[in-house]
Amino acid sequence: MNQIDVSHALLKDAQELGHEARAGRNDHAVLKLWLRMLACTTQIEAEIRKRLREQFAMSLARFDYLAQLYRHPDGLKMRALSRYLMVTGGNVTGLTDELEREGLVQRADSPEDRRTFIVSLTAKGRSSFEVMAKAHESWLLELFDGIDAKSVQRMFADLGELRVHLVNHNNASTSKEKT
Rank of each mutant, 00 (worst) to 15 (best):
E16I: 04
A123I: 08
L33V: 07
R107F: 01
F129E: 01
A67Y: 15
E112K: 08
D145G: 10
E112I: 04
R22A: 09
T42P: 08
A172I: 06
W34Q: 14
A57N: 12
Y65Q: 08
E20V: 12
G18Q: 11
L166Y: 14
L69W: 08
E161H: 15
N2E: 09
R163F: 13
S7D: 02
A61W: 08
S120W: 00
D97V: 05
I44C: 13
F117W: 03
S110Q: 01
M86L: 13
D64L: 04
A23T: 06
T96Q: 05
D158H: 15
W34F: 15
L162D: 09
D97E: 05
N168F: 05
L140V: 07
M132G: 06
D64S: 10
T174L: 14
L81H: 06
L38H: 15
H72Y: 08
T116V: 13
V92I: 04
L33R: 08
A21C: 06
M155P: 02
E161C: 14
F117Q: 04
H19T: 03
E98D: 12
R163L: 06
A80D: 14
Y65V: 02
E112R: 11
K32A: 09
N26V: 03
S59L: 00
D74T: 07
G146C: 10
L159A: 05
M37V: 15
L104T: 05
R25Y: 01
S173C: 07
L140H: 11
R22Y: 10
A39E: 13
S138R: 15
R49S: 04
T88C: 06
L38P: 07
A149R: 10
S128Q: 09
S175L: 12
F156S: 11
L10D: 04
A29S: 09
P73Q: 05
N170R: 02
N170F: 02
G94H: 00
M1C: 08
D13S: 14
A9R: 15
R25K: 03
D158V: 11
F56L: 00
R79P: 03
T116A: 09
R51S: 12
E102F: 04
L141Y: 14
Q3L: 05
A123N: 08
L17K: 11
N26E: 09
I147F: 15
A172G: 05
R51T: 06
K32Y: 07
H72L: 02
A39Y: 14
L38N: 14
G24M: 06
R79K: 15
Y84E: 12
K176V: 08
R114G: 00
M1D: 03
T93C: 07
A21D: 00
D5F: 05
D74I: 03
D109C: 04
A39Q: 15
E16S: 13
F144G: 08
A29W: 10
M1P: 02
V30E: 13
S151Q: 14
S128E: 05
S120P: 06
T179A: 05
Q3K: 13
R53D: 07
E16H: 08
M155G: 06
M37H: 13
R51G: 01
E16D: 05
N171C: 01
Y84T: 11
R22F: 10
L31R: 09
E98Y: 10
E20Q: 12
H136P: 01
E142K: 12
S173F: 01
A135D: 04
K150D: 07
E130C: 03
G160R: 11
T88P: 03
E130Q: 06
T42N: 12
E45T: 14
